[in-house]
């Protein structure tokens, strides 16, 4: 665009430098805002993570993340995110496949897709309330299982406010998200491939093992990582369900901001940086895998 504008006024070539500067001015509001409220705050934390309270450079804070209580909360976060992402990936993939390849009526597909658009954004506090009403001590499903089937799930060790309870709650936004992001890949499995495989005598299992699974694998892995990051950053649902007793990383950071529970502000910065690193790695891998997966979707 700029080149063409320059070509229209060849004698005024020298003017093009101020003109470029003038063009750049148009980005000042956005860049200024992003710098002030996004880049600078994050930068402040990153710098603080590598400093002692009096400002000298150190690795101690980052090494402090290995302390048992912090390492435990990272481990808990990673396990919880892994479990809910794995369940979400498998369930979402099964559902996508059932909807797309299972001959379901179009209206049902449309309804579930629209619902998923809403449900994948239904994280947070209301979701916690919905699950308390469902699987809490007096929840509908808890009561039906107890009174109709004679199975008291709380007596046999289940609690909504525990690891698996949280996993089951997370699944409510993970499953719809998986359905939304994996649908293009499942739709991209051409029926010609299947017909070609069948005409050469392949069984259904052989088709999935040698064609379907390898083509879908990068997408599925990528979506798993997206779900992982999605769960890792979840905070409001956990607080609404468990107060702040369940010490996943976001909860520890939340308490640190509230009242310096780690007794070391710079360790708090390191915790924030550790969280960013986990999110960064899973998102970068997601993007790489997605690029690889798009080869088949043209």
């Amino acid at each position: 665009m700029t080149d063409r504008a320059d070509a229209m006024h060849p004698p005024a070539r020298r003017l093009s430098v101020p003109r470029k500067l003038w063009d750049l001015l148009g980005l000042v509001p956005f860049l200024g805002f992003a710098f002030l409220f996004l880049v600078a705050p994050v930068f402040y934390l990153v710098v603080g993570a590598f400093q002692t309270p009096d400002g000298t450079f150190t690795f101690d804070n980052m090494l402090g993340l290995a302390a048992p209580n912090i390492a435990n909360s990272f481990w808990l976060s990673i396990r919880l995110s892994f479990a809910s992402a794995a369940l979400g990936t498998v369930a979402g993939l099964l559902l996508a496949q059932a909807l797309i390849l299972g001959g379901m009526p179009a209206w049902l597909r449309q309804a579930i897709t629209t619902f998923s658009g809403v449900a994948s954004n239904f994280a947070g506090v209301p979701l916690a309330f919905a699950f308390i009403a469902t699987l809490g001590r007096l929840g509908l499903v808890t009561l039906i299982l107890r009174d109709v089937f004679g199975w008291n799930i709380y007596a046999s060790g289940f609690s909504l406010f525990s690891f698996w309870g949280l996993t089951l709650t997370y699944l409510y936004f993970q499953l719809p998200l998986m359905l939304l992001v994996i649908t293009p890949a499942v739709e991209g499995l051409r029926s010609e491939w299947r017909e070609a495989a069948e005409s050469m005598g392949a069984s259904g299992w052989q088709y999935w093992r040698m064609i379907g699974a390898p083509v879908l694998a990068p997408s599925v892995m990528g979506c798993f990582l997206l779900l992982f990051a999605n769960a890792f950053g979840t905070l409001a649902t956990v607080i609404a369900l468990t107060g702040s007793n369940f010490s996943v990383v976001p909860i520890v950071l939340f308490q640190q901001i509230r009242g310096n529970v780690l007794y070391n502000p710079n360790l708090g910065y390191a915790l924030a940086v550790g969280m960013i690193l986990v999110m960064l790695v899973s998102n970068l891998l997601y993007m790489l895998l997605r690029r690889r997966a798009e080869r088949w979707q043209k």
């Binding site: 700029t2 996004l38 705050p41 994050v42 901001i257």
Partner: peptide, 30 residues
């Protein structure tokens, strides 16, 4: 006007997906 700066603007726009809200507000408070 500035297609060359598009990657920068896109990067900044998608950055909040990587920075959890709790981290963001932590930095802002400090």
């Amino acid at each position: 006007r500035l297609p060359k700066l598009r990657p920068l603007v896109e990067f900044l726009s998608f950055l909040p997906l990587i920075i959890p809200a709790v981290v963001l507000v932590f930095g802002q408070i400090r």
